[in-house]
Every structure is written in C-alpha cells, then in structure tokens.
Amino acid sequence: MSNPESFIEEVTEEVRRDRTMALMKRWGPVALAVVVVIVGGAAWNEWQKASAQSQAQAFGDALITALGGEDIAARRDAIAAVEPAREEQQAILALLNATALNNGEGGDPAAARARLLQLAETPGLAPLYRDIANLKAIMLGGTGDAAQDAAILETLALPGAPFRPLAIEQQAVQAMAAGDMATAVTLLRALTEDATATADLRRRAAETIVALGASPDPA
C-alpha cells in the first residue's frame, strides 16, 4: 500500500456510508412522515389563507352592493340579506344594520339603540366592536340608566382607548344635559388640546365652549 492515508480515508468513508445507510433504513420512514406533515401543514395554512381572503372579498363585495341601494329602505333590506361567514363579519353587519335602522325615512332610533346594546353584550365580541356599539348606543340616547351610561363612557374615555376623544365629547354632552356647565367646559377644553382628537372634533369642542359663554382658553 503506497498511500496509507488514502486507504484510511477510503475505509473511513465506507464506514460513514454504511452508518448512513443503516440510519436511513431505521429512521427513513419517520423522516418521511415528518416531511409529509410539514409540507401538508404548509399547504393547509395556504389553503386557509386563500379561503379567508376569498370570504373577505365576497363579504366586502356584498356590502358594497348593499350600501349602493337606491334608497334607505333598499339598503336596509340588502344589508339584512348579506350572509356573514366569520364572527367579525357578524359584528360589522350588526353595526351596519343598526345604522341603517336609525337613518332615513322610517328610521327607528330606539330599535337601533336596542340592537347596539344587545351587540355590546355578545359573549366573546372583540373589544373594538363592543366599544363602537356602546358609543353609538350612547349617542342614540344611552341605556336609560344615567349611572350605567356614565360608567360606559368612563371606560371608553380611558387613556389609550380607541374612541377616547368621542367618549369625552359625549361626557361633555351628558354634563350639559345634567346642567353641569363647568364640567362640560372643562371636558371640552381638554378636547381642544387632545392631539388624538380630529381637527373637526377640536373645532366642534371650541365652538361649543363659546356657545356656552366661556372661552376655549382657560387663561
């Protein structure tokens, strides 16, 4: 043997090949099953994504068609006929149904408010939809219990809440209804300085302060 090192390398490679073959015979089926599960799981996830996207598109198209009705009565009927496929779609439909029920000729604010309050009590409803339903119900007259309305608005007006500026405006409205103009002005002044409030809302708050005989500037 003129090259011992070459011989050793060949033997080592042969031993490695034999071990690999033995491992493949022993664990090959398991590895194959793992690969099948991974590939199958990826395919299932892609199918679910495609299915969800298709459902969302169909739902959106149905809503666009429904909201394009000739008059409010036609829109009410069309919205009521849309079939939701997911929980969030059910919530969106309930909000639209309540809005359509409140608007236009033949509107029924009391029925719309009742639907919104019922939606807000739905178990498992996403917080965003619950907040919208509660806020819209308050704007339509509330629950009929001043203390409960105040508690709802207090929650909606917490720092970081998505509809905090609108909730503060409703708190001011409630204060004015109770004859507490000082509290109303204080709340409205806070709105004029709230960076999260829209320009329209800040302007509306300032105009309301002036209408109450006060100055938007506390100084």
Rank of each mutant, 00 (worst) to 15 (best):
E14H: 13
E154V: 09
G107E: 00
P216I: 02
A81K: 01
A182N: 09
Q171S: 00
P159T: 00
A73M: 05
T99I: 14
L188V: 07
G28L: 14
F7N: 11
A91P: 03
A195F: 11
L140G: 10
V11Q: 07
R130K: 15
Q170K: 06
P29M: 09
A214I: 02
R189S: 08
P165H: 01
P4I: 01
L166F: 07
A80N: 08
V36K: 11
A150C: 11
T196S: 10
K49L: 14
P218L: 11
A178Y: 05
T208W: 08
M176A: 02
L135D: 05
A199R: 07
A147D: 12
A62S: 04
R203I: 09
V82Q: 05
A177Y: 05
D149N: 13
D77L: 10
Q89R: 09
R164H: 01
K136Q: 15
A112V: 02
Q170P: 03
G107W: 06
G213S: 05
E105N: 04
D77G: 11
I8P: 08
Q174Y: 07
P162T: 00
L101I: 01
L101C: 06
D145H: 09
N134D: 13
A111R: 01
A151M: 13
M181V: 14
I92K: 09
L187E: 03
G104K: 09
S51M: 13
P127E: 11
W47V: 06
L201M: 05
M24S: 10
Q118A: 14
D71Y: 05
L95M: 07
I64R: 15
T198L: 06
Y129W: 15
P4M: 04
G124Y: 10
S54F: 11
V30H: 12
R26P: 09
T99Q: 15
R16I: 00
A62L: 00
A157C: 05
A52K: 15
L125F: 06
R115L: 05
E88Q: 15
R164E: 04
E154K: 12
E169Q: 07
V34D: 04
A94T: 03
E87L: 12
Q53N: 10
L187Y: 00
D61L: 00
D217A: 04
D200T: 14
S6G: 11
D145N: 10
D180F: 03
L96F: 04
I209C: 08
T122N: 06
A112I: 02
A98V: 01
A94Q: 02
A62Y: 03
A211R: 03
Q55K: 14
L158S: 02
Q48G: 08
A133C: 06
R130M: 10
A42N: 15
E121M: 10
R16L: 07
I132Q: 06
L212Q: 04
A31F: 15
I72A: 13
E154C: 06
A137E: 01
S6D: 11
I38A: 13
R113M: 03
I209T: 06
N102Q: 14
